[in-house]
């Protein structure tokens, strides 16, 4: 197992003066290939802040983050954006799809920002949608799809660029249990790729069966780390 994301002694202070909050207080965590890690904790525990730092969206106040072995220390916003588009795929709680674009174009966007255009990009976007079971929805707009389908488009967007780390923020929170289960099944499939790791932030205990590892965070500190119920079933990379 190779670490695709590594965070050491992460401290994050949000706000200033009287409003200052220590969101993270020396967190060490990593995400390896072939694993689906659940980051669990109550509201306000710092799990989304940690996800943002691991995803190079926020910079830590202290500590070091490396993505694919590359340190983010001192990186400018454009360098962090470059790290994100090359290494990280995001799945958001409220999907964040572009309502005026079709499913294919929404997925293609992740390639377009990397400069991958043309027929090959369209083909890759369609393949990614087929992987998440949406081959029949290529030309549908988000408004014409169910919540579960929209989240699958978001997953297709996250994986289409071959990101080594998929970071999902409460991916099932807006879905019913059936759709939530379907989404976690897809994420488990992705995590079985030997070149990828999936980190899911959640406070939903129904997701526990899908985890190969569970990290619990409270008050900005990792309080436990344990093996999950799911077995790692790593597929060799094609």
């Amino acid at each position: 197992m190779t670490a695709v994301l590594q965070a050491e002694n992460i401290v994050k202070v949000l706000g200033q003066g009287a409003a200052e909050v220590h969101a993270l207080k020396g967190v060490n965590v990593s995400l390896g290939t072939g694993e689906l890690t659940l980051l669990m904790g109550p509201s306000g525990s710092g799990k989304t802040t940690l996800l943002s730092i691991l995803g190079c969206i926020l910079s830590p106040t202290e500590g070091a983050v490396s993505v694919g072995g590359q340190s983010t220390e001192g990186a400018e916003p454009e360098e962090l954006a470059d790290l994100r588009r090359r290494n990280i795929g995001f799945v958001f709680q409220s999907y964040h799809l572009f309502p005026t674009l079709t499913a294919t174009d929404n997925v293609r966007l992740a390639l377009d920002v990397r400069g991958e255009r043309g027929r090959k990009a369209v083909s890759r976007a369609r393949d990614a949608l087929a992987m998440v079971g949406l081959a029949h929805k290529l030309t549908s707009f988000p408004g014409q799809m169910s919540g579960g389908e929209q989240q699958r488009v978001a997953i297709a967007r996250a994986i289409v660029g071959d990101a080594s780390a998929i970071l999902a923020d409460e991916p099932t929170a807006a879905l019913d249990s059936e759709n939530g289960h379907a989404i976690m099944t897809i994420l488990s499939e992705i995590a079985s790729d030997a070149a990828r790791g999936v980190l899911v932030v959640t406070h939903d205990p129904r997701l526990l069966p899908f985890a190969t590892r569970i990290v619990r965070i409270e008050d900005g500190r990792i309080v436990s780390e344990e093996q999950g119920q799911a077995k790692r079933k790593v597929k060799a990379n094609a």
């Binding site: 969206i57 454009e78 954006a81 470059d82 994100r84 795929g89 995001f90 990397r114």
Partner: peptide
């Protein structure tokens, strides 16, 4: 969202 998925400015 574009910025989050890594688009440049």
């Amino acid at each position: 969202t574009l910025r989050a998925i890594g688009s440049s400015g």
